[in-house]
Design a protein around this nucleic acid. Structure first.
Length: 756
RNA sequence: GCCCGAGUGGUGGAAUUGGUAGACACGCAAGACUUAAAAUCUUGUGACCAUCUGGUCGUGCGGGUUCAAGUCCCGCCUCGGGUACCA
């Protein structure tokens, strides 16, 4: 079974589907039987979880991967069916609840379902199977609360009590997980509880002193009851005991189960790496030579009339590859075939002998820092780890993980605008004209009902709706929200929240006859912060900003906005601040518009300013805090401006540390100061502590933890001397008002706290 | 439901190991220059009280630990993201 998307004409991997729709395009996805290549990522499930501990990645991505792999420990237990050789195998994480089992459920796709069903129940079961197969993934996930199922008429035998357990089928049991069958313990599992309650199946309470009349008791801290040899034991201890006892009679064995499925590796597309595989009859063979298989030319990039992939259009002769079979594999590989290991090839892209040379591999090794989006957590970032492990196991590479450290940059969000559009009511007026309502008109009517129908009519005076029939008007007045829908409007047509009606009408043909219900002669839109996307019409084009302020300003501003990892809406309010900072920077190099710098030795003040900034910038960049250096640059330029500094030595250092943020203007100043090489080749300067160090420190003097005043003292002073100085200070005496102090805490070069 | 992350002035944010909360900007206000505007420069700007010196409160809410809490601990609330019939 694969996820088939008819609209895209291809199979999709699990991570490419969101809520039953394709992630790209949002088309419906259905289940289909198809012969496909797939990768046995499930064989690596354990290692993929275990090795997460070695990685310096965000907890949330690690968690997402862990959940996606979905490891659970438990046991498989076999239930016998009288009169049949087959046993029903179930997987459970709670074998200790074996005495609470009151029924067995098979998934509608289970291979034994039809076999066990009695003649009497046959028709009902077949109807249920048909109904379940028609339910799309979408329906199954959106109707979680709905309990459905059917009794097969058959019974299984409880391994210990030998009691008869009715066998049911229900689609809350998934065929693709575990063995596709469960033992139902209604007292300990909420879904089983709901099912048993709905179909009036016995609920056995095996938990001592726990109430299960309203819902199942799902915590694993109870003491067992009604459980034969497990009575009086806590659930945790009982687990192993139950497995042991079951195993004695070959009824059970311990088992670890994963949610992760094998990854489908075929795509019915043209653009993708072709497989080095050909067929003789129905049997596939691997191409023996190591030659690269090239995509053949094709007349049309569409599937064949029989629904075969595009490559099936190509005849044997049209392939550049020599192969001795009947036909080449027509599927191509998915995107992650390349994205899983490209970083290895990037090390050595021109190598024609091997995919990467050993020497280069040993030098570069795996990626030190990966900056990327968290949205790839269960796709690319998992596949890439899997792929790296395969290459490691095959001894092609000396490391098991592709990316040592990862930072997830935040998304820049868009500020969307919406208009309220009247649905096509069955009225001659609304069919001819599209009518839009200003935001507060809709909200006032629906939430506050602040104006009467006559006032409402007043608001319509400039629209064709004014002449509408009384019934329609009444409908709109009482429940406007039901008759309008919110739709995105291009942010370029909106100033703040006010719609530019003229521009809006012009923007599209179908808007030409649009009419607007205004408030205070203006049309207001509503807004929301969401993902920046073309389909939301909230995309900001940086070109106009670059034109107005320059690329350096934009670059600095993007950094200045806030921490790298944080999501935030795009807002250009503060960009002028960064712009004037760069202008001030430029002014340091110029006098009355002419380039003017001085040579000679810098003053101690100037040296202190620049070395302080180098230190701060270096430390901030080292901890990936890219926003805070911009403030330091601003402080530095402000200080150098007030020092009237135009010293080449100082300004050269400033240029280098600023160049990653403002590469253009710094490169220009750098070359004007006479440097032949690009500033991008200059070495990041070392700061010198001797220029920064002070011999005095301004101590904050606090009373009971509250800062009252500052006192400058030499750094060489001992703790007891500091205490003496502080206590003898007139301000201290004044604040103490003769009261005794309990304690004085002195933290050298940090703080003094007097406890009263 | 479960898992992860975040809540600091009017706004974006800073505070790195528990040690001066609000750096640096935006915005706003006043002033200088200008016929005027833009640009630029100067000053002020967390809230409340006070004529000044100053005082009280203040990092989502309620507790706690500590000489000292935005930072640590316990319990909540709100928002954002991920995930979901996984037995």
């Amino acid at each position: 079974m694969v996820n088939w998307c008819p609209e895209l004409g291809t199979v999709l991997a699990n991570d490419e589907i969101k809520n039953g729709f394709s992630e790209r395009g949002g088309f419906p996805v259905e289940q289909k039987k198809m012969r496909q290549w797939s990768m046995r990522i499930t064989a690596y499930a354990e290692r993929l979880i275990k090795d997460l501990d070695k990685l310096d990645w965000s907890e949330s991505i690690k968690e997402t991967q862990k959940n996606w792999i979905g490891k659970s420990k438990g046991a498989t237990i076999n239930f016998q069916i009288p009169g049949l050789e087959n046993k029903i195998e179930v997987f459970t994480t709670r074998p200790e609840t074996i005495f609470g089992v009151s029924f067995i459920v098979l998934s509608p796709e289970h291979k034994l379902l039809k076999k066990v069903t009695t003649n009497k129940q046959k028709q009902k079961i077949e109807e249920y199977i048909a109904k379940a197969s028609l339910r799309s993934e979408r329906e199954r996930t959106s109707e979680v609360k709905q309990v459905t199922g059917e009794f097969t008429g058959a019974y299984a035998i409880h391994p210990f009590t030998k009691k008869k357990l009715p066998i049911w089928t229900a689609d809350y049991v998934l065929s693709s997980y575990g063995s596709g069958a469960i033992m139902s313990v209604p007292c300990g599992d909420q879904r089983d509880w709901l099912f048993a309650t709905k179909f009036k199946i016995t609920i056995i309470n095996i938990f001592k002193d726990k109430d299960i009349s309203k819902s199942a008791y799902t915590n694993k801290d109870a003491i067992l009851n009604n459980s034969d040899f497990l009575n009086g034991i806590t659930t945790k201890k009982a687990e192993q005991l139950a497995i042991k006892e079951l195993a004695k009679n070959n009824y059970a064995e311990p088992k670890t189960q994963y949610k992760l499925r094998d990854a489908v590796f075929s795509r019915q597309r043209y653009w993708g790496e072709p497989f080095p595989v050909y067929y003789k009859g129905t049997l596939p063979y691997l191409l023996k030579n190591d030659k690269v298989v090239e995509l053949p030319k094709i007349d049309n990039y569409l599937p064949t009339n029989d629904g075969e992939p595009p490559l099936a259009r190509v005849s044997k002769e049209e392939w550049k590859t020599d192969f001795s079979g009947d036909r080449m594999e027509a599927n191509t590989m998915p995107g992650w075939a390349g994205s899983s290991w490209y970083f290895l090839r990037y090390i050595d892209p021109l190598n024609t002998k091997e995919f990467v040379s050993k020497e280069k591999l040993n030098y570069w090794k795996n990626v030190d820092l990966y900056v990327g989006g968290a949205e790839h957590a269960t796709g690319h970032l998992l596949y890439s780890r899997f792929w790296t492990k395969i290459l490691y196991d095959l001894k092609y590479i000396p490391f098991e993980e592709p990316f040592k450290k990862m930072i997830n940059q935040g998304m820049i969000q868009g500020n969307s605008r919406f208009v309220y559009k009247l649905k096509n009511e069955s009225s001659s007026i609304t069919k001819k004209h599209t009518i839009y309502f200003s935001k507060n008109i809709v909200e006032d009517i629906n939430h506050r009902n602040s104006f009467s129908i006559n006032e409402f009519k007043e608001k319509l005076i400039n629209t064709t709706l004014y002449k509408a029939d009384a019934q329609l008007l009444k409908k709109l007045h009482t429940q406007l929200e039901k008759h309008v829908f919110k739709t995105h409007v291009d942010i370029n047509l909106v100033e703040g929240y006010e719609l530019d009606i003229k521009a809006f009408k012009k923007s599209r043909k179908e808007y030409n006859n649009a009419e607007f219900v205004l408030e205070n002669e203006k049309f207001k839109c509503s807004g929301a912060v969401e993902k920046m996307s073309k389909s939301y019409y909230n995309v900001q084009n940086p070109d106009t900003l670059v034109e107005k302020y320059g690329a350096d300003t934009l670059r600095c501003y993007e950094m200045f906005l806030g921490p790298l990892e944080q999501h935030k809406p795009w807002d250009t309010k503060g960009i002028t601040g960064v712009y004037s900072f760069l202008k001030k920077f430029w002014k340091l190099f110029h006098k009355e518009g002419k380039f003017n710098v001085s040579k000679g030795s810098p003053t101690p003040q100037e040296l202190k300013t620049i070395h302080k900034t180098i230190k701060k910038t270096k430390e901030d960049i080292d901890r990936f805090s890219f926003n805070t250096p911009v403030s330091s640059f601003m402080i530095c330029v402000n200080e150098l401006t007030s020092l009237s500094c135009n010293n080449t030595e100082i300004l050269s250092l400033l240029c280098i540390i600023l160049s990653p943020y403002a590469p253009h203007v710094t490169e220009e100043m750098w070359s004007k100061m006479g440097n032949k090489n690009s500033i991008s080749l200059a070495e990041f300067p070392e700061y010198k502590n001797e220029y920064i160090l002070e011999n005095k420190f301004k101590y904050p003097i606090s009373f009971n933890g509250k800062m009252k005043f500052l006192l400058e003292l030499p750094k060489t002073l001992s703790i007891s001397d500091i205490e003496k100085e502080v206590l003898n200070n007139t301000k201290t005496i004044k604040l103490l008002q003769g009261k005794p102090h309990k304690k004085v805490i002195v933290v050298p070069n940090k703080i003094v706290n007097i406890v009263i």
